[in-house]
Simulated assay, not measured.
Amino acid sequence: MRIFKDFKAFNEYIGLPNPLDNDIDIGYYDPPNMLLKSEPIMVDFYRVSFKTNFVDKTTPNAKPVNAVFFNSPEMIGGWDIEPTYKGMYVQLSKKIIDENRFLFKNYLDYGLHEPLFLTDNEIVEITTLFELMIKYYNKERQNFVVLLSYVNVLISLVEAFYKRQFSTDPKEYNRIVTDFQQSVKDYYNRPVSQLPNVQYFADKLGLTPNYLGDIVKHFTNKSALENIHDFVIKRAKELLVDDKKLNTTEVAYELGFEYPNYFSKFFKKQVNLTPKEYRLQTIGKN
């Protein structure tokens, strides 16, 4: 499998012009002169692609779509596409993301899981913004700060459009939330040795953590980690009240805490009572 570490090598492979900069590359697709089919490859940078009338031949009976696609470092992907699409791309190095993380959002890490399907009005907005980006990109680094600002606006637009998409088909996204919540319950239906994290459940569901987290946040108004913590507290309360043979240290281990003191601090922060205080207060009321 080929791995592309920089824009220049990747652009030569698929038939795009040489980049003007090593950290940001912007341009238009030219499908008739590009590689339309490829074995799986990996790129070591971020890519955001905007494509209209795009047909993926690997999908049976695929219909043309207008969408935004993401590729992140270490993501493996191949393609087989029709040469009928038009589009634009932005490529960003890991360095520029790390140095300007405050400008960028989780969507760069959505990966292959969730294209953003665009409405006609959204296409017009993105095209207009992209033309401005190309203008400043062609001036190379003379207006680099302005160019980065436009990239930030572009990512902010994507954020707004994703919220619209999440709300358009709530049944599909609610299924993901339900599967996530059920996975948390299933995790505690067996002996555990550590606290679970968002990455664990994202892997179980075949999603990226950022994608899972944004859907969960959109529909529950809490982050995925907050949802996990809520369940841990619920389970802790059940153990403290229903299984009086367990002391608080044993409850901590049952929940996957490595250090009982951390469990006590965690519980106190969430409930405003220590585990012992909660147990005594609840049992006393009953």
Rank of each mutant, 00 (worst) to 15 (best):
N53Q: 12
N33Q: 14
V68G: 12
T52L: 04
F50I: 02
N66A: 01
P31C: 00
V48F: 08
P60A: 00
V43D: 08
T52A: 03
G77Q: 07
P73M: 12
N66G: 04
M75R: 01
S72P: 13
A62F: 02
D30W: 05
R47E: 15
M75F: 06
K51E: 09
P32I: 03
V65G: 09
T58D: 06
P40L: 09
F70H: 01
T59W: 12
F69C: 05
V48R: 03
F50S: 06
E39M: 02
K37E: 14
E74N: 15
V55I: 07
F50T: 05
L35F: 07
K63T: 13
V43I: 03
N71K: 14
N71S: 15
F54D: 04
M75Q: 11
K63F: 00
K37P: 15
M75E: 12
V48T: 04
K57S: 13
F50K: 10
F45D: 04
I76P: 11
Y28G: 09
Y46W: 01
M42W: 03
P60Q: 02
L36S: 08
L36R: 11
N71P: 14
V65I: 13
S49H: 15
Y29Q: 09
V43Y: 07
I76Y: 02
K63E: 10
V48W: 04
F50M: 12
I41W: 01
L35P: 05
A67K: 15
M34V: 06
I76K: 07
T58H: 06
G77E: 03
I41S: 00
K57L: 10
Y29G: 09
F50Q: 11
N66L: 01
M42L: 11
S49Y: 15
N71Q: 15
S49I: 14
Y28I: 01
K51I: 04
I76A: 06
E39V: 06
I41V: 00
F45S: 11
K51R: 03
D44S: 13
N53W: 06
I41D: 08
M34E: 02
P64G: 09
P64V: 10
L35A: 10
R47I: 03
S72L: 03
K57A: 07
T58K: 07
P40W: 02
E74V: 06
M42F: 10
P32H: 03
M75K: 09
T52H: 12
F69N: 02
P60C: 08
F69S: 10
F50A: 08
E39S: 06
N53E: 14
V65L: 01
P73T: 01
V68S: 00
G77H: 05
L35S: 12
L36Q: 11
N33H: 14
P32D: 04
N66F: 09
D56F: 07
V43W: 10
K51L: 09
M42T: 15
D30G: 07
S49R: 15
R47Y: 11
V68M: 04
T58E: 09
T59D: 14
